[in-house]
Amino acid sequence: MAVLSIRDLTVAYQQQLALADACLDVEEGRIVALLGPNGAGKSTLLKASVGLLSTIRGEVTFFGRKLREVRQRVGYMSQAAEVDWDFPTTVRDVVMMGRYGRRGWLRRPGAADRQAVAEALDAVGISDLAGRQISQLSGGQKQRTFMARILAQDPELFLLDEPLAGVDVASQDAIMAILKGLRAEGKTIVLVHHDLSSVPDLADDVVLLREGRVVASGPVAETFTEDTVMQCYGFQGLKSRAAA
């Protein structure tokens, strides 16, 4: 059974199709990279699948069910650029937000939650930043904070919108190691990704999008070819791929 199954998902902004009849099946324990140039519909695909955008048609199931029946098994992480990093809060409190869905928002966080937050901070290597105001974080530290939050959320399926955008090399390595570690635990990861050169190292499967359509999808070895990358990105992509 597919962990995530998307059929004919179609989204439009005003009169403009952002996603057209996208179909996708994600198997358990895989790292799936959504690739494509800006405006190809990668983030739209993730957002629409978790109900953040209204869709024209299409069906999305998680573990064979509707999202609302399995919310705790699905974690979604926004692009870091989409939130207000001047918000008056600390790294620790942001990570704690990941716990609210699990224990209910009415209850005060307990010892188990604090433990989960501490472990998540430790896993991404930012325990020393726990009390830091979030506006003082670097790009890499912001992404690590978000990773810690979704680790504290503890889902089975991770939907990550550009978790490696704007990060330094150390943070990139740390986050990629975490993603591989999650896969080793049998978790499933779908991420929007920009750096073509790291695709073969990180991902098991790729989904290539262009102008709202899925051009190709499948295992990296078969699908991440010169042909498909050319078709999706043009020559520029071919060069980036060659760097791998």
Partner: peptide, 23 residues
């Protein structure tokens, strides 16, 4: 007091609040 956590998450990251099923 009652809805503090929902108010804070919705203000900081509305997408997270919605995907977690917070009201």
């Amino acid at each position: 007091t009652l809805t503090y956590r929902v108010l804070v998450v919705s203000a900081f990251d509305p997408n997270l609040a919605r995907t977690m099923g917070l009201p």
